[in-house]
Design a protein around this nucleic acid. Structure first.
Lengths: 189, 189
DNA sequence: TTAACTGCAAAGAGTTTGCAATATC
DNA sequence: GATATTGCAAACTCTTTGCAGTTAA
């Protein structure tokens, strides 16, 4: 599973290597050093576009490649990349952060407060333009980022869950009534 | 400073009491108990509309009224209110949460990544409609919530700070280069 | 009276940091 | 060679939780 049967590297791998180099060059230009750890972490992020990895996941994948890598390095690297605008921090109210390599446009996640499902909204380019125009009107310039829209998904709506029902639903919306369920939500897309 | 010179309660105070009662009734209807601590916390939230209090701040204000109130009660109460949809959680990537009483529409904060300023965008009703239409198109129903748009404010733009400059700005965008500044950003609005 | 709620203190989880060793420039 | 970076472990901060006592219904 580590590589395709074909021993030559695929187009996709080439693309990732190229992008990784671009990131490393950006770091260098900013006065930071190019280290194998940083390269590993950036490669993982690029290989997992759309996966929204958290620090634990990043660490565990990174350690497959380099077992000596420490969690502090992961934190310091995502902190650095986020600070430089090369990485978006995602907050899903889980008690920790996830990270996503941004492209030139913004991203719009929808996540269901009832079942925890997370999906990307379509036409992100149009939506990006809209949000940018809001900011521009006030003189603000927006940075690439990811927005989290919280609500109820079609499946849960179909199950009869509504905003007005919140008091009766209790689970899992009211955490106090069902503490055990809090961290069981899977995370996809 | 505790009350106006006039010893009768003001219209505003009446309004807050009325709203507090409404909240307490909502709790009761949902099967939760009406306690003095919950009442105190809700009152504080209603008196500080637009302030985006965090747990520490809530605790300190609550203890002026009731010195025995504990931080666990604050956490449990905001958790409960948030779960019931009576309170919005706000994440500004500070390492902790802030809270805001939502009205029927959504809120749009802009915060400057360079200086930390936070402001509300205008025409929130229109923007709410727009975002709602995005969700509706996919069959999602959005809940009242607060969005955080990160970028660069006019003042910082005027200072010559741009997205492309991030590498050169270093402060306070790149935390690693200026750790001491991290938690110095004031929070207004 | 009974079950929900509170305060406390301890535990948990995520994140940050000081420092000696190491790697980059 | 100078200094940025790393790994480790300890420290820190925010948040949650078990429990005994208290309070609302």
């Amino acid at each position: 599973m580590k590589r395709s049967g074909n021993s030559t590297i695929s187009e996709q791998e080439k693309q990732i290597n190229k992008l990784t180099d671009k990131y490393m060059e950006r770091l260098k230009n900013c006065g930071f050093r190019v280290t194998s750890q940083r390269k590993t972490i950036i490669e993982i992020l690029l290989k997992n576009l759309g996966k929204h990895l958290n620090v634990k996941e990043l660490l565990s994948i990174a350690q497959e490649e380099d077992p000596t890598i420490g969690i502090a390095t992961i934190y310091r690297t995502v902190d650095l990349l986020t600070g430089l605008g090369l990485l978006n921090m995602i907050n899903l109210e889980e008690g920790f952060s996830r990270f996503e390599v941004p492209d030139e446009q913004m991203h719009f996640h929808f996540y269901c407060k009832s079942c925890g499902k997370v999906v990307h909204l379509p036409d992100e380019k149009d939506k990006t333009n809209t949000v940018n125009s809001w900011a521009q009107k006030e003189g603000f310039r927006l940075l690439p980022q990811t927005f989290e829209l919280a609500g109820i998904c079609p499946d849960c709506i179909a199950k009869g869950i509504t905003e007005e029902d919140f008091c009766d639903v209790k689970w899992p919306i009211c955490r106090q009534r069902c503490k055990k369920q809090r961290h069981r939500w899977g995370h996809e897309s």
